[in-house]
Design a protein around this nucleic acid. Structure first.
Lengths: 205, 205
DNA sequence: GTCTATAGGAGGATAGAC
DNA sequence: GTCTATCCTCCTATAGAC
């Protein structure tokens, strides 16, 4: 796998991420995208085979990292008696928040929000097959900490939490950081907001 | 305004709603759309002027009705001392749920979820100018019932509730109705789920 | 009001030179 | 690996007959 940020492949992926976030998968053309990356039009088909495979690689690059961090964080707390609901939510949310505040990854959550809205079967199958196990592992842990919820109730609430977080982190309603607050503090505060809200929702009577 | 469901305009709007929900605003072409409506290709430009104006009319048709119902429900309870958070949430959620279970409007919430993901400035300005007052009225009432929340906290939580509901009602995670449950009962149960979750989230410590 | 036909351009993909 | 040139399909929009 290529990881240097200077290869043609990486340049295409970065430009594609931004343009898919701003204009959607259909709305961003290979012509715009290759122009923004400073590479030739034919490079996409040479390196990725097709636009659809490029879209998959845009997800893979970020989700491998994001879900890796999530699983690492979860594995440190899963099954332990002193683990709280807030701990599990933090393991899920904080890696995404770190990603969405990195310069190079700040637009990815918007791409992810678009993918949810798309309802595209091919894309959903790709995401489910490659990253479905992450949601399942988190759900197992939520179930352990919320033993009074029926399976149906739990799925409902996890889904609502997912919706709230995707919406929030896609930057739609993200409250702007004030100039007297550091980037790191702002991220901490945002995480606290999201975790408090999600924990209360999951714990509803 | 045309309200008969048999006019060319209405046939186009209904077909457009379904195709925009399934394939997105860019993904659905005027050719697909007019073929599905059983009208001529040129009819869209004759009746609406352009594809963009058609998109606006798709929103207007449903949002006028949806937000009318919401405002009516809110006006019955706003400012009254016995009104609960759950009452206000019901006024917001139930009209949307009724719409999303009507045969003809079941796909509109997916169109709305796409609009959120789009981040398109023109579309967002259109929605804000025409329907922004609804969100503001509801927020006033939430503020009255949650006097301990700072303005910032309140906006955060209302935004998270919006995200959760849009996600849920766009049918992404909508739990299927079982055959021994009537449509009406299922809608009531869904509303209870959403309201309980949202009230708990808004009320978080 | 509704049709056919077409303009005029953008799209993804590829062949073949370098 | 990278380029140019091009194929062919699809798009929105409109002109003009009925």
């Amino acid at each position: 796998m290529q990881t240097s940020p200077h290869t043609t492949k990486e340049r295409i992926l970065t430009a594609a991420e931004e343009l898919f976030a701003r204009h959607g998968f259909d709305g961003a053309s290979l012509r715009q995208l290759t122009a923004a990356a400073g590479v030739n039009l034919a490079a996409v088909n040479y390196h990725f085979g097709s636009k659809d495979r490029l879209i998959e690689e845009v997800f893979r690059r970020r989700l491998d990292q994001l879900n890796g961090h999530r699983m690492t964080a979860l594995s440190r707390i899963a099954g332990q008696p002193q683990t709280t609901l807030e701990d599990v939510l933090a393991a899920f949310i904080k890696p995404a928040l770190e990603l969405s505040h990195e310069g190079s990854g700040s637009l990815f959550m918007r791409v992810l929000a678009r993918a949810f809205a798309e309802h595209d079967d091919t894309l959903r199958r790709f995401l489910s097959e490659n990253y479905g196990h992450v949601m399942r592992q988190f759900t197992v842990e939520f179930a352990r900490l919320l033993p009074d919820l029926s399976k149906e109730e739990l799925y409902w609430r996890v889904d609502l939490v997912t919706g709230a977080l995707t919406h929030a982190m896609s930057g739609f309603g993200m409250i702007q950081r004030k100039s007297d607050v550091t980037e790191r503090m702002h991220r901490e505060q945002t995480a606290e907001h999201l975790i408090r809200f999600a924990a209360a929702g999951l714990n509803a009577p």
